[in-house]
Structure formats: structure tokens, C-alpha cells
Design a protein around this nucleic acid. Sequence first.
DNA 1: TAGATTGTTAATCGATTAACAATC
DNA 2: TAGATTGTTAATCGATTAACAATC
Lengths: 212, 212
Amino acid sequence: MERKEISNAVIKRLPRYHRYLGELLENGVERISSNDLSEKMSVTASQIRQDLNNFGGFGQQGYGYNVEYLYNEIAKILGIDRRNNMIIIGGGNFGQALTNYSNFERRGFMIQAIFDISPDRIGKNVRNIPTLDMTELESFLSEHEIDIAVLTIPKHAAQEVTDRLVSCGIGAIWNFAHLDLKVPDEVVVENVHLSESLMQLSYRISEKREQG
Amino acid sequence: MERKEISNAVIKRLPRYHRYLGELLENGVERISSNDLSEKMSVTASQIRQDLNNFGGFGQQGYGYNVEYLYNEIAKILGIDRRNNMIIIGGGNFGQALTNYSNFERRGFMIQAIFDISPDRIGKNVRNIPTLDMTELESFLSEHEIDIAVLTIPKHAAQEVTDRLVSCGIGAIWNFAHLDLKVPDEVVVENVHLSESLMQLSYRISEKREQG
DNA sequence: TAGATTGTTAATCGATTAACAATC
DNA sequence: TAGATTGTTAATCGATTAACAATC
């Protein structure tokens, strides 16, 4: 697949296309036009066609898009057609919640281990996934192919752990800690900043309140 | 505070400004110029000034911005200078993780109750917060001022629960369920779609892989 | 074939950046 | 006052929408 520089706005929309196509597929819909999809998703048909044509022509004039084909092609673009091995750093509530959330597995995101520093947690399994001592991080990473490290640890420890992960050659970090991690260019980071999400909601509430 | 139409891009950046200013404040920094802040945050000084001037002039020529003042003003803009009462719908792993995450409380987001349908959970407390039966939702909402309902329930139940919340006059929903909720215009929804976040990360990984 | 709908180019719109006069 | 830095206008850049020729 050849890639131009794809804008972030486009990439953010791809998973949502994928989700809607998945639903159509479940409902047995075979084909759909950009126009019908645009109505379902409340976006413009033009945007859908532009977005998709960044990656190639997946449709057919006069017919539209084959739902199953497009669904699979977007999965390939997103890289969810392959297995992604993950480790979770931080076995607290969030780490456990993510581990227990089986939907990630269905998409090929497999959690291989949880790491923690608390003796209460080390040695315990969550859904058959072992909780290991943080001191074992380096040896574990040298022995396993891990694609993504998930950071569910407090802010103060996050950069130090990130540096260790980067030293081990980790390529991607899914960061739930509330700070901006410093990583070299070759490492990709995706942030989930829940407090910021909540503050945006709070802003919208205030906005409404003032409009009366 | 008078409000023009503020773009979503600006609103998304406000919490991050707030966070950096909070850190400066902790470090005892009294004033900062848009230029110094722009370097810390890796954005342009122009953007910082443009963003802030949507809400008023918080700086002073030749001086810059007073850190504490700006921090508090952004808090007001975001509506986090007041208390926001929340309920959590869905007492599973995520619901419990959010309940246990005390940082929200520090910002005035107070969880008043958890609602669930499982007899195993109903009646149990999480950090002194009671888990109530979903059948009590309507009566609870009529007796308490709740600003935000947090949805940590499976996709299939989310729209039905949303409809009930809307009937009770809820104004804001923080949605962790992986679907787009249908709500009337007066209700604000903020989505946290973790799978989509993970897919974006996956895309970036694939992108790197192809670049070699 | 005629109708439908894509892929793609052109036009518009909005957001970001640059520049600078105002002013502390 | 002179220097620094804002607030704000103007220029640029990028993303979205519209239009339509290509084609199934």
C-alpha cells in the first residue's frame, strides 16, 4: 500500500467508518453508496469519498462500495488485520479494566502480561494474564515480541517507565497517564487523557448553561 | 463571559493549556510569555494568543501572562471552577476504575452513585459510593442534582439507558460505550471511544513499519 | 443504453501562522 | 523612555465541500 502524507483528521475518521461498515455487514447489507453512508454517519458524501481515495479506489461507479470489501480494506489500512501484542504497565483499576475488556482481543490486540510494583498484585492473574514484577520488564521484552505498551500508571512514574520501554525498543505506547511523554521520533504515542475529555464536556455544559 | 462560536479545535487545547499552567504554578513560576509557553508545549505562540483571545485579553503587553491568573481564568472557561455531580451507569471494571480515580474529585467532579443491574454489585460500596439498582435511576435523578451521567455499559444497552437519562432531563453524558448516541440538541455528549484510539495507534504503527 | 455513483479537480471555507501596531 | 510582548489584522495553509467528467 503506497502512502502519501495522510492528515490526522482522516485517520481519526477511519475507525468510525470501520465501525459503521461492521454494523452494515452484521445487518447483511451488501453494498452502500457514499451518499447513504453519509446520511447514516452525519458526514458529507464528499468527505467519505475523499477520505477513502487517500488510500485507493475502493468503489465502483454506478454501484457504490461493497460493504464487506471496504470493511476489510479499512481494517488493513488501520493495521487491525494482524495481531498486536500488548503489555500493560500498571495493574491498578484501569489496567485491570483494560485487561478484562475482551473486545480488544477480538480485534487482535492481545495482552501478554501486566507489570506492577505492588507485591499485592504481582503473581496474580487477571483473565489468565500474569502480573509480573516491574523489575522483569527488560527481560520479558527481550524474550517476547511486544508491539504496544499500555501505560496505566501515575503521572510521576510515567516518563521513567517510558524511557525504559524505549531503551528496550518498544515501538508504540498507549498512554493513559496525564502528561505528554517524551519519546524519540521512531516511537508512536497515542494519548487517552480522560481528564481532558471530561473538561471538554464541562466546557460544553457551561456553554449550554450560558445560552440558557 | 461573552462567547462567540468557539471552534472545537480551540476547546480541545484548553485543558492542555490548563495542565501546563498548573505545572508552572506548582513550580512557582509567576509569569510566562506566549513564546516561552509555546516552546514548552510545542505549539506556536501565535496559536496560544489566538486561542486565549477568543475569551478575552488575559495578558499584558511587555509582561506576558500571570500564570496563576490565567490558570484560574481557563478553569472558569472550562467550567471546572464549580462542582459537577456525576453518576456512573455500569458498575463493571471501567465504572469502578473511574470511581476509584480520585483525580476527578480534586477537580470538582463528584461521583454520587453507581447504577447497575447485577445483584452481585447492587448494595456494595465503592469508596463509600453506593451501587444502586438501575430501577432506582429515575427516582434518584428526581431527588438529586446530577450534571453528568457516565456510561460504562455495553453497547447494546447504551441507547435505551440514554433515552431514560434524557427523559429525566440529564444535560450531559460522558459516553464510554462504542456507539454514537442519539440525543436531543440540548444534551451534550462527549465520547471516549477506546477502540478507536487503539486503532489510530495501530495505524501509526503500520505507517512506521512501511516506512522501514 | 441510461442511470447511478464514483474518483478527482476546483471552489470554498476555516484554522493556523505571520506580521505589526498598540501598549504596558 | 526603550524593550518586550500582547492583541489583532492580514496572509497562508490545509481541510472540507461542491461540481462534474469518467465509467460501471
